[in-house]
Amino acid sequence: MIKVNTEDYPWHAGMTVRNLLDEKQFTFRHIIVRVNGEFVPEEDYEKWLIQDGDDVLVLHLMAGG
């Protein structure tokens, strides 16, 4: 189990940041991802492996016009 934006979410072996974003259908382009507080650059989404117990923050940066 991992945390995604403070809520429990099931973890599976080999889960990358990209997998997580796809599973959660987080399609908004303008986001910030942090894993255990560490910023993950967009070019690393495919290769960054999420570990069981990780605390993932996916901040959507939109505040409306």
């Binding site: 934006n5 403070t6 809520e7 987080f26 908004f28 923050l57 996916v58 901040l59 959507h60 940066l61 939109m62 505040a63 409306g64 016009g65």
Partner: peptide, 18 residues
């Protein structure tokens, strides 16, 4: 009108203001 506040992502998706 949303010009005072648009908090949907902060609240509903990011869970920044629980």
């Amino acid at each position: 009108q949303h010009d005072e506040a648009w908090l949907i992502f902060m609240d509903m998706v990011n869970k920044q203001i629980p």
